[in-house]
Nucleic acid binder design. Sequence first.
RNA 1: GCGAGCGUAGCCAAGUGGUUAAGGCAGUGGUUUGUGGUACCGCCAUUCGUGGGUUCGAGCCCCAUCGUUCGCCCCA
Length: 418
Amino acid sequence: MDNIQAIRGTKDILPSEVIYWQHLEKTASKILEKANYHEIRTPIFEQTPLFERGIGEATDVVGKEMYTFTDRGDRSITLRPEGTAGVVRSYIQHKLFASGGIDRLWYSGAMFRYERPQAGRQRQFHQIGLELLGSRAARADVEVIAIATDILKALGLKNLSLQLNSVGSKEDRQTYRQALVNYFTPYQNDLDTDSQDRLTRNPLRILDSKDQKTQEIAKNAPNILDFLQDDSRSHFDKVCTLLTDLGILYELNPRLVRGLDYYTHTAFEIISEDLGAQATVCGGGRYDGLVTQLGGVETPAIGWAMGMERLILLLEQLQPLKPQSPDIYFVSRGEKAENQALVMAQNLRQHGFKVELDLSGSNFAKQFKRGDRSGAKICLVLGDSEVETGIIQVKNLENAEQKTVSQDQLLEILSLSL
RNA sequence: GCGAGCGUAGCCAAGUGGUUAAGGCAGUGGUUUGUGGUACCGCCAUUCGUGGGUUCGAGCCCCAUCGUUCGCCCCA
């Protein structure tokens, strides 16, 4: 095929689908603003080292999924694969911490990951996410999770489950990691090949393996929760009780591991039963070390991101949304009438009516047909005779009643019938 | 990066080696040249993603390539 088409893994969002996006954006932003989160918009590309340092060199995202290129100034540039690193960079650069206290930020936009597309996964995809910077409190973790569940509830989504875990402090994780290596090494040859590889690269991931034999072995592996120091443990316990107090159901999942290196303590995912293999609809956690790691003053923080395409997949299963119809379909015939209709349509719009003007120049029958299909309630008809006598026909397309009114009275009549 | 399936009009498709490529929706023209929603009639793929091969003959078989879908890996 030599026609140019959208790049693999990217998608046009056509008008029939945009309605869902608008619905999602409106619902989410309303809830975010109510919790006094403020929208931030950061660039879609950044210097490559931001992601390498922030997300972690060893992660798959950095290792094999980034869209990286050299620009004309010989700088290495990367299309953002996720939102947090850029927001934190901006937070540090503009010294937002200097304004004191706690920052609540949210964002939405396109992210890029070079992966094989499949159900619920694209190379350019969209996330809506939030970051709460400056609080170590368990209440912060819970606030953030509660906002996520609020949004999903407001969207009317069902069959979701909140998976919760703590990956502890950096030190906790270090000792746990060693314990896992010690546990799995004797079984090395019985693990699936992916997991053998993970033994050195990222042993926590082995717990997640879909291979049956590996699962069998992992059953008796040490549990991260047993490796938490006292303060990590009590933080996590608080998060759990506060969630329960708020009536938010969760499932403890000690095998939940997040893919980016910066996570500490609380980690969570919200999973849908109604998607394919890519079922995570929201993922997030605490990242107390990231701000310092990127050169800012020590700032504890927590955030999450939702995959908008995945949410939309669910919304489409839920209820069909249709594009809005015009209030008025304006039909005209003859040069004078056509020109006058243009002027009148413009005037009606300024008075708040949604009006579509038929530009086809075809006969009235055809124009009416189109008007009918447009879904408009009212059809305005202007022809030569109306122009001469200063009147206009107002036809109700639902009951076929047609009135002749003077053009001066048109606005009045329309506001009564719409 | 690996594995499997699929690719016929704007959309949904029938067709599985024999020559004119069903059907439906949508569109469009007409019956009805100042009045829609129904009905009826007409039109709407010299061509089956692309390139090559096998064959007397290919949408149908083979190879390559591109795209797409689903899964693995990974993640939102």
